[in-house]
Amino acid sequence: MATRTSEPPIDDKLSEFLQGVTLNRSIPLRDQVYALVRNAIVTGKLAPGAPINEFDIAAKLAISRTPVREAVKKVSDEGLIEVFAQNGTFVSGIHRNQVEEAYIIRIALELESIKRAASVITQSQIEDLEDIIEAHAVAVKRSRFDEAIARDDEFHRYIAGVNNLHMLWKAVDVSKAQMDRCRLLSLPSPGAGLQTIAQHRAILAALASHDAAASMQALQTHLETSLGNTLTYLDANPDGPAVAKS
């Protein structure tokens, strides 16, 4: 880890993002700092190459450096931050191979999740998923893309929760960090949000009929479409500011 003198100053956008943040001292500080920094990167508030200065983050949040160091290490483990011993810590670019690997992991885990959910899902749970889809549609219609992605994740997380597979979703969530960054970049493209909603409705229809095979097929089609859209975006924007060149 870089020393105090070699670390770059805090990025203006991160400083703005942290302005007014109050941490809850009753829950682990590192988890809160992790969520803040990860969210800033995933939503593009911190661009690739932006400096991450642990000392200044700690000062801004009025906490010790230890929970910040632990949080940054966790974000780094997800491939969102690169640490250079002599130069400092910076937001990483998006790596195509990491995006593809994330989808491989996600598809495998979620297919198992939905197969189990199809046989036990209740009418009440079906209605909850319907509500999530409707909220997602409103967010897309109003071009609230951060909210649209949150509702998208909520839909998938809820399905994992039907069988209390919360650790499964946690594994998916950790693995898809680079994927999430691409989603925010590509979602404003014409029809992308509407396509996702239509595919969610197809998934829900299969779940409502308790058809495991159809549910798995609908989910796989949805995730493979998402991967295809993401790779198309990356191929069309090879010199984009978020795309890693190596």
Results as ranks from 00 to 15, higher is better:
196 T>K: 01
206 A>H: 04
219 L>N: 12
153 D>R: 13
230 T>G: 02
203 I>N: 10
218 A>G: 13
177 A>E: 05
123 Q>C: 01
151 R>M: 05
166 H>F: 09
113 S>C: 13
152 D>I: 03
134 E>L: 06
142 R>A: 06
205 A>V: 08
146 D>I: 12
121 I>W: 14
148 A>N: 08
179 M>G: 02
152 D>Q: 04
218 A>V: 01
123 Q>A: 07
166 H>Y: 10
212 A>L: 04
161 G>N: 12
197 I>T: 08
215 S>L: 11
119 S>R: 11
209 S>M: 05
177 A>P: 01
184 L>I: 00
235 D>C: 04
209 S>N: 11
192 A>I: 10
129 L>D: 00
195 Q>D: 05
126 I>R: 13
196 T>D: 02
167 M>P: 01
185 L>Q: 01
193 G>D: 03
195 Q>F: 05
133 I>Q: 11
157 R>D: 04
230 T>Y: 02
139 A>C: 09
203 I>L: 14
210 H>I: 07
198 A>N: 04
153 D>Q: 14
227 L>S: 04
180 D>P: 00
182 C>Q: 03
154 E>C: 01
166 H>L: 12
181 R>T: 09
221 T>C: 02
178 Q>H: 15
151 R>F: 14
230 T>I: 01
138 V>P: 03
124 S>Q: 12
113 S>I: 05
228 G>L: 02
136 H>L: 03
228 G>A: 11
144 R>H: 14
185 L>P: 07
236 A>K: 01
141 K>G: 14
138 V>N: 06
222 H>R: 08
215 S>I: 08
167 M>N: 13
150 A>P: 00
225 T>E: 08
219 L>F: 15
200 H>P: 08
171 A>L: 03
193 G>W: 01
145 F>E: 02
169 W>D: 10
219 L>V: 08
183 R>A: 05
180 D>T: 10
228 G>E: 06
194 L>E: 04
111 L>S: 08
218 A>E: 10
229 N>C: 03
209 S>H: 04
222 H>M: 10
165 L>M: 13
132 I>V: 14
188 P>A: 08
118 A>D: 10
165 L>F: 14
204 L>Q: 10
111 L>P: 08
168 L>M: 04
226 S>H: 06
136 H>N: 11
173 D>R: 01
231 L>D: 03
130 E>K: 13
139 A>E: 07
148 A>C: 04
185 L>K: 06
193 G>Q: 12
226 S>K: 06
176 K>F: 03
197 I>V: 12
222 H>G: 02
148 A>R: 08
150 A>H: 09
122 T>H: 15
135 A>Y: 09
180 D>S: 04
187 L>N: 11
227 L>A: 10
124 S>A: 14
165 L>G: 12
164 N>K: 13
221 T>G: 03
158 Y>T: 15
176 K>G: 07
198 A>Q: 07
182 C>W: 00
168 L>S: 02
114 I>F: 15
233 Y>N: 02
182 C>F: 09
176 K>V: 03
162 V>I: 15
152 D>V: 03
150 A>L: 03
227 L>N: 09
222 H>K: 09
157 R>A: 08
124 S>M: 09
232 T>S: 02
137 A>Q: 13
124 S>V: 15
130 E>H: 14
208 A>Q: 11
173 D>G: 05
